Simulated scan of single mutants.
Amino acid sequence: MKLSRISSSRNWQLKVALAALILPVFVSTVSEAQVSQMLKAKESEAQKFVVSMNKAQQVYYAEKAGFTSSVSNLLVYMGRQIKPNSANYSYSIGMVSKAAVFNYGVSKQANLKSFVGGVFLVGNKTQTILCLNVAPGKTKPANPTNTKGVLACSANTAKVAQ
Rank of each mutant, 00 (worst) to 15 (best):
L121P: 04
G123L: 14
A99D: 15
Q127I: 03
T147H: 15
N11P: 00
Q13V: 08
A155V: 10
A33K: 11
V119K: 02
L14V: 11
Q34M: 14
E63N: 11
K98N: 13
A155F: 09
L21D: 00
L130W: 14
V122A: 12
S107P: 02
V106S: 04
A20L: 14
N133F: 02
S69Q: 09
T68S: 03
N11W: 12
S97P: 01
N156V: 07
S154Y: 11
C131K: 11
Q13D: 02
S92E: 04
N111M: 14
G79M: 01
V106I: 07
F49K: 11
M95P: 02
A17K: 10
S9F: 15
T139M: 07
S97M: 04
K159L: 04
A19R: 01
Y89D: 05
V35K: 12
Y60E: 00
S114F: 06
L151Q: 07
Q109L: 13
Q57N: 07
V35D: 05
E43A: 13
Y61E: 03
I82S: 08
S8N: 12
I22P: 03
V59D: 00
G94K: 13
A135K: 10
L39G: 06
K159Q: 10
P136L: 07
A41P: 03
S8T: 13
R5A: 02
T128Q: 15
F115N: 12
L74I: 02
K113S: 06
E45I: 09
V76F: 00
P144Y: 09
F120A: 01
P84R: 06
K113P: 03
L151W: 09
K108Y: 08
S90C: 02
N11F: 12
L132H: 14
A65I: 04
G118F: 10
R10A: 14
L23G: 06
A135N: 04
L112K: 05
Q57S: 08
V116E: 11
I129N: 13
T68W: 00
K108I: 08
Y61R: 04
N111L: 13
S107E: 01
A20D: 06
